[in-house]
């Protein structure tokens, strides 16, 4: 009995569990049998270049894109017929704003609440709290089209919280925002996570993923190419230091054999050198006046570029 209970509670601790999740559009397979799970209370990042299959994965989680094969349990439920019940426990911040332009800030929230069959005094109080949380209280009766990009995003986040969801899905939550607005969103997302909710987010900003996410998967061409915490991924895939050399790199011959081991990659006009000991190389480069050099610690962006390549994606 006790064992059974433990098993059950262990299972419900996984908010999302995907096994062999696959989606095809005609000939193209956009999600190729991916396995991953998201424990309750985590901030989980889904990274990948455009067309990697991130948004399709999010849509399958929401039950608005039918999968072709595989298992997908959300809150322990794997039944497309229950999708509306599952969605009642999820909040969504979409990639592009889809606020209702015909309504004011507060009407957007109350009408959205009605889609969850939430009405009455309780929801009024909740809306008041959410406007306060997103610092929109003084904008309650403003029309949507006069809000700034940052305010719209904050309202979209408030809207995603209207049903007090257990899981919040954010598809590129800070794309197109200025640094102030982005930091504000980050601090709110951290608060949401601290309140015990699970976050699943996609982003193209590696800094955002490093700051917010406990765990990350990197997708490319419908596959998962790496999984782990941001720190662990950097440690596993990249040497400790990065030296970027810009300028006429081809006209200068550097004999890299004289330095500690260094993995090199030329991208456009920049030569990236990944090494665990950058000092001898840097000392040498200092004598080469016409080159611009930059030394920095390895970060998630290096992992991302190493695993998904440097080619453009459209």
């Amino acid at each position: 009995m006790a064992t059974q209970r433990r098993t059950k509670s262990f299972e419900t601790e996984l908010v999302i569990q995907a096994r062999g999740l696959t989606k095809r559009y005609g000939e193209a397979t956009v999600v190729r049998g991916i396995d991953f799970s998201v424990p309750r209370g985590q901030c989980f990042g889904l990274l990948g270049p455009n067309g990697a299959g991130k948004t399709t994965t999010l849509r399958m989680i929401l039950g608005v894109t039918p999968r072709d094969s595989g298992e997908l349990q959300i809150f322990g439920v794997d039944d497309p017929k229950q999708a509306h019940r599952v969605r009642a426990r999820i909040g969504v911040v979409p990639q592009l704003d889809n606020l209702d332009p015909d309504f004011s800030v507060i009407e957007n929230l109350s009408v959205y609440a009605s889609f969850f069959s939430l009405h009455g005094a309780k929801i009024k109080e909740r809306i008041r709290q959410l406007l306060e949380f997103t610092e929109l209280s003084d904008r309650a009766h403003t029309r949507i089209d006069v809000l700034s990009g940052g305010m719209k995003r904050r309202l979209t986040i408030a809207r995603a919280l209207i049903n007090d969801p257990e899981l919040i899905i954010l598809d590129e939550p800070t794309t197109g925002l200025d640094p102030q607005a982005r930091h504000m969103i980050w601090s709110r997302l951290r608060q949401i996570r601290q309140s015990g909710k699970t976050l699943l987010l996609t982003t193209h900003y590696m800094e955002e993923a490093e700051r917010l996410c406990d765990d990350i998967i990197i997708m490319d061409n419908g596959h998962i190419v790496a999984q782990g915490s941001p720190n662990a991924l950097v440690k596993k895939h990249i040497e400790a230091h990065v030296v970027e050399i810009r300028g006429a790199t081809e006209s200068i011959s550097i004999n890299f054999d004289q330095f500690p081991p260094c993995r090199r990659q030329q991208v456009g006009d920049t030569l990236y050198c990944y090494t665990d000991d950058a000092h001898p190389l840097l000392a040498h480069l200092e004598s080469q006046g016409e080159l611009i050099t930059l030394q920095r610690p390895a970060n998630l962006e290096d992992v991302f570029l190493k695993l998904t390549g440097h080619e453009f994606r459209d």
Binding site: L62, I90, P94, L96, D100, F115
Partner: peptide, 14 residues
Amino acid sequence: TQRTYEAMQATPLS
């Protein structure tokens, strides 16, 4: 144009 249905599809509405 307004993607109102997209917003609705993220709720229990089908």
